[in-house]
């Protein structure tokens, strides 16, 4: 009896469904779409999924530890601090199947990474800026924080594209100095540490400092709406070009109205969906889902005025609106 009980504790679930978890980097509508993708996959596969949205790196650590304590079969996590969390992830990987999504932690023992190449996505964003400003100009970048890998690479992609460099995802220009290229100048990258009032004030201060600025690029989901708000209050909507990232409602509406040139969107639904499918396959012993290089690319897309309506409709249907 006791032996049977002990056995049932590890791996083999008697009649119980397999349990998986998605752990995000924070709280955002982006992650709600991801959650929806995960839940849809779980429903289709007949497994359980729990989605946890931590408020900080520390919180993510304790949420992961709690999951281990509770016992799950597999976890897909978005790394907040890829380098320093490697140890934590290795510990998780010893006790459950671990994969990363959205943000990778290449140094850890995760099985596979499901996500987007942020450098490539940043490059796509740079292309949108070029389309918006065919004759060149001055650009400022706004972002929540630069500590995380996806932010660094996303920003670098924009800069490299605008400066007309060759693609090299390992390049890193420290912020602080303006980056001057033949046609485009990236004046500054300004962070707001997720304080929205500050994020808006940053845009206003940029408009003050560089009156002739040509384009403002918001690299985190909430940045483009703040840019729009600041421009509107300065009566400069349309005069200064806006390029965004992610699919905040206000950003998409801006594209429809012409105040935003375009945005680059990831496919969080697919992150969640694919992560759960891979975790399920791995838990069944199917290793064929791991590709060469351990990276499953979910490509980013550029959204402009021509395809925004279709994209919005698709998004709303995924969110069940």
């Amino acid at each position: 009896m006791l032996g049977a009980l002990a056995l049932s504790g590890c791996g083999e679930k008697e009649g119980g469904k397999a349990k998986f978890a998605l752990v995000t980097t924070g709280v955002a509508s982006f992650w709600d779409i991801c959650k929806k993708g995960g839940e849809d996959a779980a429903a289709a596969l007949g497994v359980e999924v729990e989605v946890l949205m931590p408020s900080s790196g520390d919180d993510q650590k304790s949420k992961l530890e709690d999951l281990l304590a509770k016992g799950v079969d597999g976890i897909a996590v978005a790394a907040i601090d890829p380098v320093n969390q490697a140890g934590l992830f290795d510990e998780v990987a010893e006790n459950a199947i671990l994969i990363t999504m959205d943000t990778d932690a290449p140094a850890s023992k995760r099985k596979v990474y499901v996500g987007m190449d942020n450098y490539e996505a940043g490059w796509m964003c740079g292309e949108l800026v070029k389309e918006a400003l065919p004759d060149g100009g001055e650009v400022a970048l706004f972002i929540g924080r630069l500590e995380q890998d996806n932010a660094k690479r996303r920003r670098q992609g924009v800069i490299d594209c605008l400066l007309g460099r060759d693609k090299d995802a390992s390049r890193y220009d420290a912020p602080g100095q303006p980056q001057v290229g033949p046609k485009y100048t990236v004046l500054a990258t300004i962070t707001d540490q997720f304080d929205r009032a500050k994020g808006k004030a940053n845009v206003e201060d940029m408009l003050t400092k560089h009156e002739g600025i040509d384009a403002l690029v918001g690299l985190f989901a909430y940045n483009p709406p703040l840019i729009l708000e600041a421009l509107k209050q300065a009566n400069r909507l349309g005069e200064v070009k806006v390029v965004g990232f992610d699919e905040d409602d206000v950003t998409l509406q801006g594209i429809e109205e012409g105040t935003v040139y375009g945005t680059v969107v990831q496919d969080p639904y697919e992150y969640g969906n694919r992560s759960i499918r891979i975790l399920h396959a791995l838990s069944q012993g199917d290793k064929s889902v791991i590709p060469e290089g351990g990276f499953i690319n979910i490509e980013a897309r550029q959204i402009r005025r021509d395809n925004v309506a279709a994209f919005r409709g698709d998004l709303n249907s995924k969110l069940g609106k």
Binding site: G26, P225, L226, E229
Partner: peptide, 9 residues
Amino acid sequence: NGNSAQPSD
């Protein structure tokens, strides 16, 4: 004024 608020921060 800002028109955007996230409950977590």
